[in-house]
Structures are given as structure tokens and as C-alpha cells.
């Protein structure tokens, strides 16, 4: 198992290098001049030239990239053009926010999505299946920003139950922190629950038709045991894949949800950074989320082997 994990990590390294090269070149290909944005309404040519030199924007892109890799290897991801804050510090500030939102959203998605999927597969063709499917489809189709604003108007403005937006660090006030994050996590979680429900349903459907399920039933096992212990366990592999991929995506930041609920996570940071052509920040965040995504993939591979002994190395 350890050798397997080690191999996967080695394979991941070239992927990370490729990601960083792609991001670096692609964002420099974007039209628009970061220095003009940075200078704002003041356009003293001398200042513009100084800033260009300071942020090495006059160098050819490969040289800029190598300089970035050089300092990145020493743990320096550069500073934000917009606020002068070190990028590493920014990532450290945003990571707990994004992590909390991702975990809470995933909990919503799992708690709603998996049982709904199991139930609709088990009751295939009945009204329960239809209702679950319609709800799932609506979950997928309703845009996050619309649902978000509607929930703010209902839950915060009309009922006054939860804060309308913002963020409270978990370490300062855990209860308030969870209260503030509840609505965004729910909005994000419902859309993901729909995806999970569809995957769970199809995985369960194929498992429920297998011979061993018929055998288990013939043995006279309770239906609950058949469903949870025999069917669901075997259907888990695709569900785990989808869940880890979803979690990886969540770590990259939920742009729209964070914008609506004003949550200072990766999504909001990266959007502001792109619009301001804040190259160092975009680069730092993408590197960070790229690593997170690859890590989640490795975790998924490990999970398969834990769940399914046949996939383990001989």
C-alpha cells in the first residue's frame, strides 16, 4: 500500500509542474495590462515603468516563470499586486474558510444525496423514485446565485434566523461560525447532492440486479441488511470517486456562492485576482488547489483499495 501511495505521489509531480506552466502562460496571454490596472487613475509613465520592472513584467515569460519557480521552491510565492500582502499568507488566511465551506457543503451533499439515491434505486419506477429524480433535477438546474439570494431574503431578511452573509472564523466563535456558513453550505450542498444522488442511484441499480443480492435475499436476510451491507457497500466505489472529485472542486473555491454570501475564500480571491491581473495570487491559488485536487485523487485510489479487497496489490 505504501509503495502504491509513493508511486502515485511521484506521478503527481510532473502534473503539478505542467499545471503551473499552463496557468502561468495562459494568464499572461490574457489581454489587459496589470500595470495599468495597478496604476489606476494616475498614469505617470515613470511610475508605470518602475512597477513593470519591479514585478519583472518586462522579462520574457520563460524567464519570469523560472524566477517564480525559483522563489516558489524557497517557499516564497510572491506578493499580491493589489494589496502587497504575501501570497502564502493570503492562502493561509483563506484555506480554513474554504475548507470549512467545503466540508459543510459535502456533509449536506452526502446526507441528502446518498440516502435519496439508495431509496430511489430501491423503489425504482415508483412515485418515490420520480419525486427524488425531479428534486435532484431541480437541484442541478436551479442556479446557486438565485437560490442564494432567495434564501437570504427568506431566512435572514424576513425571518431573521441566520446572518445574511459574511464570515466568522471558527476559532473565534464556533457557533456563530457554523450559523454564518449554514446557508452557503446548504446552497452549495444541494446542487452537489443532486449529482451524488444520480450516481448513487445508477450504481445501486446495477448492484441490486446482481446474483449475490438475489442469493442474500434467498438466504432470508433482512432487507435492510441486504441493502446497506451487501448492495451499498459494493456500490460505494463510484460514489467515492464522485465524492472526492466534488471535494477537490470545492477546495478550488465556490466562486458564485462565495460571491453571493461574501465568504472570503479561494473562489472570491481568485476572481478578484483575475480581474486585477494579480498574477502572483492566481498562480499561487491554482498551484494550491491543483495540489489539493491531486491529493484527493490519491485519497480516492486508496479508498478503493480499502473498500474493495480485490483491487489491492497482490
Amino acid at each position: 500500500m505504501l509503495a502504491f501511495i509513493g508511486r502515485r505521489i511521484l506521478i503527481a509531480i510532473p502534473t503539478i509542474i505542467l499545471i503551473s506552466i499552463f496557468v502561468f502562460t495562459l494568464q499572461h496571454l490574457l489581454p489587459g495590462d496589470p500595470i495599468l490596472v495597478l496604476a489606476g487613475e494616475e498614469r505617470d509613465p515613470e511610475v508605470l515603468e518602475f512597477l513593470r520592472e519591479k514585478y519583472r513584467l518586462n522579462d520574457p515569460i520563460p524567464i519570469q516563470y523560472l524566477a517564480w519557480v525559483g522563489s516558489a521552491l524557497q517557499g516564497d510565492l510572491g506578493i499580491s499586486l493589489r494589496t502587497n500582502q504575501p501570497v502564502l499568507e493570503l492562502i493561509g488566511e483563506k484555506l480554513p474558510v474554504t475548507l470549512q465551506l467545503a466540508v459543510m457543503a459535502l456533509v449536506f451533499a452526502l446526507v441528502i444525496g446518498v440516502p435519496a439515491g439508495v431509496l430511489s434505486a430501491y423503489k425504482k419506477g415508483t412515485w418515490i423514485d420520480w419525486v427524488a429524480n425531479v428534486v435532484a433535477l431541480s437541484g442541478l438546474s436551479v442556479p446557486n446565485f438565485w437560490l442564494g439570494i432567495m434564501m437570504i431574503l427568506l431566512v435572514s431578511v424576513k425571518l431573521g434566523w441566520l446572518p445574511a452573509s459574511g464570515y466568522q472564523p471558527f476559532s473565534e466563535d464556533p457557533l456563530q461560525s457554523i450559523r454564518t456558513m449554514l446557508m452557503p453550505a446548504f446552497v452549495l450542498g444541494t446542487a452537489l447532492a443532486a449529482t451524488l444522488m444520480r450516481h448513487t442511484r445508477s450504481a445501486m441499480l446495477s448492484v441490486l440486479q446482481s446474483d449475490y443480492i438475489r442469493t442474500a435475499r434467498a438466504k432470508g436476510l433482512a432487507e435492510r441488511v441486504v441493502l446497506v451491507k451487501h448492495a451499498l457497500r459494493n456500490a460505494l466505489v463510484p460514489i467515492v470517486t464522485v465524492t472526492t472529485l466534488i471535494f477537490g472542486e470545492l477546495l478550488a473555491g465556490a466562486v458564485l456562492t462565495e460571491q453571493i454570501f461574501t465568504i472570503p475564500g479561494f473562489g472570491k480571491l481568485v476572481v478578484d485576482a483575475v480581474f486585477n491581473r494579480d498574477y502572483a495570487v492566481v498562480q499561487g491559488i491554482v498551484l494550491c488547489t491543483g495540489v489539493a485536487f491531486i491529493f484527493m485523487n490519491i485519497l480516492a485510489d486508496v479508498a478503493y483499495r480499502v473498500l474493495n479487497p480485490r483491487m489491492r496489490d497482490k
Binding site: I149, V157, P163, I260, T262
Partner: peptide, 18 residues
């Protein structure tokens, strides 16, 4: 000072007392 870019959400925050 709380930056809230969406005008609808900004107003909702004011109405909710936040």
C-alpha cells in the same frame, strides 16, 4: 467596513440588521 459586491445582498444585509 465589509466589502459586499452584490448590491442585492448588500441591501439584504442592511435590512437584516447585519
Amino acid at each position: 467596513f465589509l466589502p459586499i459586491p452584490d448590491t442585492t445582498v448588500r441591501l439584504a444585509n442592511l435590512r437584516a440588521g447585519d
